[in-house]
């Protein structure tokens, strides 16, 4: 259990003097689903960028499966078993759904046969031959997840996978992510603003505000934390859902 984690240790990230992350530590173990929430600009995407090698931490370390990956390039971090999706969908627009996922598979030396079951698992079999850009927003999000999974990652980073999805789509996404965890045993680190989804999906939730961890723990603990309520749930501009009630109902 000790090596099968993706860990960020005391990570600091400054962009030309602006502090995006200020000493954040976070660990995701295999088979675990960890949520990352926080107001806009709290450093969530920066954290995923560091975990996938897009950005290099100013201070602190990235350790993937026991290997120090600090400062490694994105393709090298991917080879250690980190797959991700993007907040702004980044599919290969002119390629078919099937080929998008196939690129994800071959990039990591997986077989072509790997693709069809994944398309079926993510409910994309019917649109496999469509050109990616013609798909609906929700379908495109699922293609991104399939593409990331095609490389058989040990750690899957999802950046706002439910953005733009309606309630039933996000419920289906929840079931899919849980099934992926069961079947592939991979760890999931997920960023999303859909708190209804996050509270039900995640084993643990990590709350960031202004680049610092303000709370970490089970959804119940996070929901009850006064700092979280003040910084996030209770602040102006927070999601208008009846948050705790919605969460308890599930």
């Amino acid at each position: 259990m000790t090596t099968a984690t993706l860990a960020l240790r005391d990570v600091v990230k400054r962009f030309q003097g602006v502090v995006a992350l200020d000493g954040v530590s976070l660990e995701v173990a295999e088979g675990e689903i960890v949520g990352l929430i926080g107001p806009n600009g709290s450093g969530k995407t920066t954290l995923l960028n560091i975990a996938s090698g897009v950005n290099r931490p100013t201070e602190g370390r990235l350790v993937v499966g026991g290997v120090d990956a600090t400062g490694r390039r994105p393709n090298q971090v991917a080879k250690l078993g980190v797959g991700r999706t993007f907040q702004q969908i980044r599919l290969f627009d002119d390629m078919t759904v099937h080929d998008n996922v196939l690129v994800g598979a071959v990039a990591r030396g997986e077989d072509r046969d790997h693709v069809a079951p994944l398309l079926a698992r993510l409910n994309l079999a019917a649109v496999a031959d469509r050109v990616a850009v013609t798909l609906s927003y929700g379908d495109q999000r699922r293609v991104e997840i399939a593409r990331a999974l095609a490389g058989s990652p040990r750690f899957l980073l999802l950046d706002e996978p439910a953005a733009g999805m309606n309630e039933s789509e996000s419920d289906a996404l929840l079931a899919t992510i849980q099934a992926i965890r069961e079947e592939q045993g991979c760890a999931v680190l997920i960023v999303d603003h859909d708190l209804r989804l996050m509270m039900r999906l995640c084993d643990r939730i990590h709350v960031l505000a202004e680049g610092r961890t303000i709370c970490e723990g089970t959804p119940d603990k996070v929901r009850a934390d006064p700092l979280v309520i003040e910084a996030y749930l209770g602040s102006a501009g927070a999601p208008a859902e009846p948050e705790p009630a919605g969460g308890q109902a599930s």
């Binding site: 393709n75 797959g83 980044r90 690129v103 990591r108």
Partner: peptide, 14 residues
């Protein structure tokens, strides 16, 4: 072909 469409994304796939 994928790299021609989105170079950064292919790097992130390994």
């Amino acid at each position: 072909l994928a790299a021609a469409e989105d170079f950064q994304a292919t790097r992130l796939m390994g």
